[in-house]
Every structure is written in structure tokens, then in C-alpha cells.
Design a protein around this nucleic acid. Structure first.
Lengths: 216, 216
DNA sequence: TGCTCGTTTGTACTAGCAGTACAACATACG
DNA sequence: CGTATGTTGTACTGCTAGTACAAACGAGCA
């Protein structure tokens, strides 16, 4: 996709709310033209139809999230602290762009069917978490888990669904504070878990014997 | 419209793969008619168009999940154990119906815009978890968290996204075993968390002080 | 047999929208 | 001025969801 002039880009954002509300199918190209003020012919001149509009909008959201998360992830702190920062970062961007988020959920199927976006979604959401998990094991701030890929996916899900569900409810006035609040709850869950007793990793109720793994 | 003859219902399932693959928009009514063997006129006689097909299919999936989770949740064990069982149950059904799951993700926006389905999604996925969390606090098997609603949403996200992402990858041969494997990883995450040190809820290493974070 | 009613189906049609074609117009830059 | 690049209105095509409707089917019944 070519480089869209900045002015058009900013106008296009006005379509996000429409798409969020009705879905891409429920949104006519003529409606998009009307709310954005960009004539239909101009839209088609720059973008590849309706899908192009969605691709542009979501690509931008993904860039934003990837940027914020990237900063959070690459700090000097230990992996656990950076994981917490990444959660705040992702939620912060999501809550600042509720309409884009809603559009993303609403047309997730289509998004994953747009090859570029599918890759972007993966590298934006999933990869940083997976990397952090590995680094946390290395620096000792996170536990080693049996199935890191599944855990990374679940962590991604925990963050994203929580953010999405808040975004879907509508825009909030103080996205940063709300994101911090959400992140605290999610961080608590992900880091400390829900069980009252310490997880019993070396308890003699399993067949693997009382020796247990070398859990620090 | 929910009273579809059994034969037609079973034929309709053949449309799930198509819809999963291409999305509902990418699927023509004539295609559905062809793969299911149900003539277009008959589809329209019973169902309310394309949305009706999706509604029927997803409603069924949701019923299945709700049933399995309901059984798991209402056992005699403590809440923590039932939570683990619920995870297995939900993932089990999801992995047994990968096409329906893919259709659900793909047309999530439309699904949430179909009123009956939106309610069903909420009561199928979210409510049982929220209830379990409260019961766990009551019976002492789960920790009390500061923000139960957000935590419930995140737990829901952790389970669902993991299941969905596996389902999206395609059908697997041993859904039950795969579900058990996934559930183990997710249960470990949700119950025990990722941190190496015990979570330090009252430890003075945080900037928020030891006053106690419950009052917001 | 012939009648009735709900269901099933083929076929032809309508309406609406995505996307295209293209010519006219604007703007920038030399 | 002239050329290039972008912008826009308008008219058009093609496709598909959904509708209309008549014909056919089949079970229950007298």
C-alpha cells in the first residue's frame, strides 16, 4: 500500500467509528466517503477499496501498539518489570483508540485474512510477550513454564481481551489511568496467579517424586 | 427459526467450514446451498438469510460450550478444581469444533451484533468464570483479587484466545488430549502466575507503599 | 381414489452496492 | 506556458442477497 497523504489519513480516521459501529459490511463506501469528506473516487485512487480502508486503519493501530510495547519491552529492567510495562503500554494505546479496537474485533476475521495484517497482529501482540517470557527465565525474574508458547498465547489473550472489552464499552475519559488500573489487575493475575496455596510444584501428590524440579 | 428439522440442521454444519474459511461475506448463499445440498429457497424458508445461518451455527456451538462448562462448574469440588475442569471443558469443545470456532472468530463482529448471540457469548464464556472466582474466595481455594471483573475478563481471554488460536490453525486429531495439554499450561499460568518470587503483595519494594491497595 | 396443508424446490426477478472508467479539473513546478 | 501528478463528479457494469411465486411433494384422512 502506497504512502497516503497525511491529510487524507487523518480524515480517514473518521471512518473508524462508523466501521466500529456497523462492521465493514454494514458500512457503505459512500458512507465512508461522506463522513470522511473524501470523495469515493479519491478513496479508490489511493486505497484498494473497503478492505484497503480497514487495512490502513488497523495497520496504523498495530504500529502504534507495536511502538509503545517495543519501548516498554526494551528497557533496562528485568523481564518481569518490563512485562508489566508492556501490559500498561498495550492497554494504553488500546484505550486511546477505542474505535479502532472495536473495528479490529468486529472485523478480526477479515483482518486475519489480510496477509499483511495477520503478520502484523502476530508480531505486534504475540512475539514481544514470547520474547519477554524467555528473557524472564534467563534473568530469573520469571518462572520457567512447561509450555511457553501456550502461555504466551494466553497472556496475550488475557491482556487483549480485557483491553478489547473495555474499548468495546465505549471511549473513556482517562485512558491512561484506566489502562494503569486494568494493567494492575492483569499483572497481578499473570504474575501471582489466583491460587491461595503456592501452586504445590514440589508437593508429593504428583507421580514425579518429591525431588521436584530445581525451582529457585 | 430455532426449530429447524434435524436433517437440515446436520446438513447445515457443512457450511461451517466454508464460512470459517472465507468469512460470511466471502461466502455466497448459493455456495452454502451447494455444499449443504439444501436449496437456496429452502434455506430462506427456514432461516433469516445468511445471518440466520451464522446464528444457528454459532448458537449451537455456544450451547455446547455452555453445557460442558456448566457441568464442570457445578461439581462438588472446591472452586479452584472446578476452574481447572472448566478450562478443560471449554477447550475440549472448542477443539472438537474448530470450524465453528473459526467462524466465530471470523465473524465475531457480526456475532456480537446479533442480540441473542451477544447474550449467549457473555453467559457462556464470561459468567461461569466470574461466579467461580467469587466461590473460590468463599471456599478459600482462590485468592481475593482487587478487581474481580477485570480478572474474570482476563481469565476468559486467556482461555478463549488460546483455544481459538489452536482451532484456527486447523483441526487436530486428538482434541481431548490437546485440550488437556493446553488446559494444563493455562491452568498453571492462571493459578500460579509467572513470577519467581511470591508476588510481594505487601512487600515494601513497590512505590505504592504498604498501606494496602484494596481501597481505590 | 382425491383433498388439504405444510413443506420443498426451481426459476425468474428486483434492488442495492462495490468497484471501474473516464473525462474534467486543480495544483505544483520548471 | 506545458507537463505531471493528484482530485473529483458521474455514469456505468457486474454481482449477489433476498423476494415472489407457482409447481411439486408427501403425509394424514375420508
Amino acid at each position: 500500500m502506497r504512502k497516503l497523504p497525511a491529510k487524507l489519513a487523518s480524515q480517514l480516521y473518521d471512518a473508524a467509528e462508523l466501521i466500529a459501529e456497523r462492521g465493514l459490511d454494514g458500512t457503505k463506501i459512500d458512507d465512508i466517503a461522506e463522513v470522511t469528506g473524501i470523495p469515493k473516487a479519491t478513496i479508490y485512487y489511493h486505497l484498494d477499496g473497503k478492505n484497503g480502508v480497514l487495512e490502513f486503519l488497523l495497520g496504523d493501530l498495530l504500529d502504534l501498539i507495536a511502538g509503545a510495547v517495543g519501548v516498554a519491552v526494551s528497557g533496562p529492567e528485568d523481564a518481569r518489570t518490563r512485562l508489566e510495562a508492556a501490559i500498561v503500554a498495550q492497554l494504553g494505546v488500546m484505550l486511546e483508540h477505542p474505535f479502532l479496537c472495536r473495528a479490529l474485533v468486529g472485523d478480526l476475521g477479515r483482518a486475519t485474512r489480510l496477509p499483511e495484517l495477520a503478520v502484523a497482529i502476530h508480531s505486534t501482540f504475540y512475539e514481544p510477550i514470547e520474547r519477554l517470557l524467555a528473557e524472564g527465565v534467563a534473568d530469573g525474574s520469571l518462572r520457567r513454564v512447561a509450555d511457553p508458547a501456550t502461555v504466551a498465547m494466553s497472556v496475550f489473550g488475557a491482556i487483549t481481551i480485557a483491553g478489547l472489552s473495555v474499548a468495546v464499552e465505549g471511549p473513556c475519559e482517562r485512558p491512561v489511568e484506566e489502562a494503569t488500573r486494568l494493567a494492575a489487575a492483569i499483572g497481578e493475575l499473570i504474575l501471582s496467579g489466583l491460587a491461595t496455596h503456592p501452586a504445590a510444584p514440589a508437593a508429593p501428590d504428583g507421580p514425579d517424586g518429591p525431588d521436584g524440579p530445581e525451582n529457585g
